[in-house]
Amino acid sequence: MMFLGGPRREDPAQGREAAPRSAPAQAVEKLRAEGLKAWFGATLALKGISLGMKERRVTAIIGPSGCGKSTFLRCLNRMHEVAAGARAEGRVLLDGVDIYGRGVDPVQVRRRVGMVFQKPNPFPTMSIRDNVLAGAKLNGVRLREEDALFEKALRRAALWEEVKDVLARSGASLSGGQQQRLCSARALALDPEVLLMDEPCSALDPIATARVEELIHELAERLTIVIVTHNMQQAARVSHYTAFLYLGELVEYDETDVLFTKPQNPRTEEYITGRFG
């Protein structure tokens, strides 16, 4: 399931080692938003965004608070429509197929496009172990595979060492930052093709942040990542491409190096240099 189709066949390590963040041109678009609009009731939160997210690359979404970053992310796996009174318009192509098209099952979309929410939301009634396995169980993973699966997921989320002795405790008994990583592990255990991360490090200390950034690098060898972050340095460190959103519109999109060194739009420049007002 992981390596479908042509673009998957190239050696993942090669591109990264040659130029870690220079985003080779041969990368194919895994996910593409076209004229994406999103409403909350009568409020238009996304005003028509077109943006491609390349396969096995990290795309960072930056922008001031309330500009629609989370909304955009939630439109990419059809989570936006879950909110009361929320609806979306436009197209989002996943491997060329419109996930908003007729006959597409949002449940299937969400199994392929995983998500880590801005606010950590572990299941409080489940143990840490069951939290990690929740998604896998929904997909009918057999008991024998469970052990390896959840240790791997927790290790990848840089949480294993901290929780390996308390796996039976509630997911809600962890600290905010641990919960955040638990939610990452939960999404990873499902082995998604695309991972949407909404500020996955907002509650983490520098060490855990570094671990998660390492994880993002590692994951990018196999899957497509879209990450929302308020931290410019982080965007610059982890992403190949960066998109700058402002008031529900895409202001600028480019390779991360270019966007941060030679922004075309004065607004982008103001934002990344911290002179935004």
């Binding site: 939301n121 929740a134 998604g135 929904l138 499902l190």
Partner: peptide
């Protein structure tokens, strides 16, 4: 909390699940 519903939905759970 809405977040707990969303957590399940985002894992590919159906409404019933």
């Amino acid at each position: 909390p809405v977040g707990l519903r969303e957590a399940a939905l985002a894992l590919g759970a159906t409404r019933w699940e």
